[in-house]
Amino acid sequence: MSRHDVETAIAEELYRIAPDIDLADVDRGADLREEFDIDSMDFLTLVTALSKRFGTDMPEADYQQMRSFDALATYLQTHTS
């Protein structure tokens, strides 16, 4: 899957959770939870949605690799064929 498609998918799922945050305004390299003002419940909702969409498990042990928007995109790209 192309980087663009992955980023579009993340942006769509983030929009469901945080419709008030414009992706153009956030620092994609900074902490995702801070940038989108999401809590642990929101993050779990995001991971659940992306995991279904990409058919990958996204284990909790890998959460550290999903700290920012960019890191999450890279993670998903690496873990989906």
Binding site: S40, L44, D57, P59, E60
Partner: peptide, 17 residues
């Protein structure tokens, strides 16, 4: 929570809350 969540898909994971 970590132990419980290890083998679980996201929809079945626990939060410490």
């Amino acid at each position: 929570a970590t132990r419980t969540n290890a083998g679980r898909s996201p929809e079945d994971r626990l939060l410490i809350t």
